[in-house]
Amino acid sequence: MTDMNWIAIGHLSDIPRRGARCVTTPKGRIAVFRTVDDAVFAVVDRCPHKKGPLSQGIVHGHSVTCPLHNWVISLEDGTAQGADEGATPTLPLRNEDGALFISLDTLSLPADLAAE
């Protein structure tokens, strides 16, 4: 973990509870979620179903419902819940007393993301 490049993206309070904000990166758009219990998750802002922007969905528990076709995606591991199959990549995120950092090191698919 210590070898990773951590990039500051802002503060917990920038994100509404049960909401999300986006981070624009050279590797595509990242959605950063804050859940009702103040947990924070970073996932690629793209539903595995039809590339819907997950950041725009309704956040409940540790999941988000995609605004396009109501797939429910786990924020913890990016997998589709229920009968749907697929996963969206998640990113390492560090929360230091509310100061948020993400690492893009594990993302290796800029070309795919650029399709957005």
Binding site: N5, R21, T25
Partner: peptide, 15 residues
């Protein structure tokens, strides 16, 4: 306002 702006813009991938 927060709805319409990205939280952060990362210009260059960190090496």
């Amino acid at each position: 306002k927060h709805e319409f702006k990205p939280m952060a813009v990362i210009a260059q991938a960190a090496e």
